[in-house]
C-alpha cells in the first residue's frame, strides 16, 4: 500500500478494516478496536499482574507500575490539589490509554487508534463533559461567573463573555486535534520515508541500495522522535485535563 507507481499513498494506513470476520464486520470491530482492547489488556496486566507480588522492594515490572502510578498521581495532585485524588483514576486511565495507543502504533503491524479524530475527539468530549459536570455540581449556577472574570470592567462584558465561551467550547477541539494531528503527522512521515526506502532501493541496483540507507536512517531517527511524541502527547492530554479539572474545582 506504500508505493503504487510513482505516487506515495501515505493515508490508506489509517483506514479501518474489520477483523474477526463477519461478526466483527457487523459490530464494527476493526483493528482500531482490537488495539484499544490490547491497550486495556497491557495496562491491566501491568497494573495488576505487575503488582501481584506486592513487594516492599519492587522488581522491574512493579517499579514500572509504581512509577506510572506516582507520575500521574503527582501530576493530578500537583495540578488540581488535594481534590485531584478523586479524579486520579480517570486521569490515570486517560494517560495510560493514550500512551499505549501511541506506542502500539509504533510496533510493526501495530495501529495507533489515537491517529483517528473520532477517537481523540471522543476522549476530549468525555473530558469536556466530565469537567462541566464537575464544575456544575460543585459550584451550581455560580459556575457561569467563570465566563466573566471578576474585576473586569462591565462595559467589556459583551466582548469578554463571548470570547470566554468560545475558548471554553474550543477546549475539546484543541485537545483532540493536537493529539490527532501529531499522531497522523508522525505516521505519515514514517510511511513516506519508508516508501522512499523501497523506491530508491529498487531503482538503481547497488547505488540504489546505498542511497536507500539515507531515508532508512531518517526513519530510525523518526521512530525515536515518535517515541518522544507518543509520551509527550499522552502527558499533554493528561495535564490539560488536570488543568481543566482544576478550573472546574476552583473556578480560576
Amino acid at each position: 500500500m506504500a508505493a503504487e507507481g510513482n505516487s506515495i499513498d501515505a493515508l490508506s494506513q489509517f483506514s479501518l478494516t474489520p477483523v474477526l470476520g463477519a461478526v466483527g464486520n457487523s459490530v464494527g470491530f476493526t483493528q482500531s478496536t482490537a488495539h484499544m482492547l490490547l491497550a486495556v489488556g497491557v495496562v491491566t496486566l501491568l497494573m495488576i499482574w505487575g503488582m501481584s507480588n506486592r513487594a516492599i522492594v519492587p522488581g522491574r515490572l512493579q517499579a514500572m507500575a509504581e512509577s506510572a502510578y506516582e507520575f500521574v498521581h503527582d501530576l493530578a495532585v500537583g495540578q488540581i490539589g488535594d481534590e485531584g485524588k478523586r479524579y486520579f483514576p480517570f486521569i490515570f486511565s486517560l494517560f495510560m490509554f493514550i500512551l499505549l495507543g501511541n506506542l502500539l502504533g509504533l510496533l510493526p503491524y501495530g495501529f495507533a487508534f489515537t491517529s483517528h479524530i473520532a477517537v481523540t475527539f471522543g476522549l476530549a468530549a468525555l473530558v469536556f463533559v466530565i469537567v462541566t459536570i464537575v464544575a456544575l455540581s460543585i459550584h451550581g449556577t455560580h459556575f457561569f461567573s467563570y465566563f466573566f472574570p471578576e474585576g473586569a470592567p462591565k462595559a467589556l462584558a459583551p466582548l469578554i463573555i463571548p470570547i470566554e465561551i468560545i475558548s471554553y467550547l474550543s477546549r475539546p477541539v484543541s485537545l483532540s486535534v493536537r493529539l490527532f494531528a501529531n499522531m497522523v503527522a508522525g505516521h505519515v512521515m514514517l510511511e513516506v520515508f519508508a516508501a522512499f526506502v523501497v523506491m530508491i532501493g529498487s531503482a538503481a541496483g547497488v547505488l540504489g541500495i546505498l542511497g536507500a540507507t539515507l531515508p532508512l536512517a531518517v526513519n530510525v531517527a523518526l521512530v525515536g522522535f515518535e517515541l518522544l511524541v507518543a509520551f509527550l502527547q499522552a502527558y499533554v492530554f493528561a495535564i490539560l485535563t488536570s488543568i481543566y479539572l482544576h478550573d472546574a474545582v476552583h473556578l480560576h
Binding site: 470491530f29 491497550a39 491491566t44 503488582m51 490509554f97
Partner: peptide, 28 residues
C-alpha cells in the same frame, strides 16, 4: 466503522476506568 469506533471507545475506556479505579489503583 468510524462511528462504531467511537462506541467501542466508550465501552473499552469504561472497562479500563472500572478496572483501574476498582482493582488496580487501590492495590498500588
Amino acid at each position: 466503522f468510524l462511528i462504531a469506533s467511537i462506541v467501542w471507545l466508550f465501552i473499552i475506556f469504561g472497562i479500563l476506568y472500572y478496572v483501574m479505579a476498582t482493582y488496580a489503583l487501590p492495590g498500588v
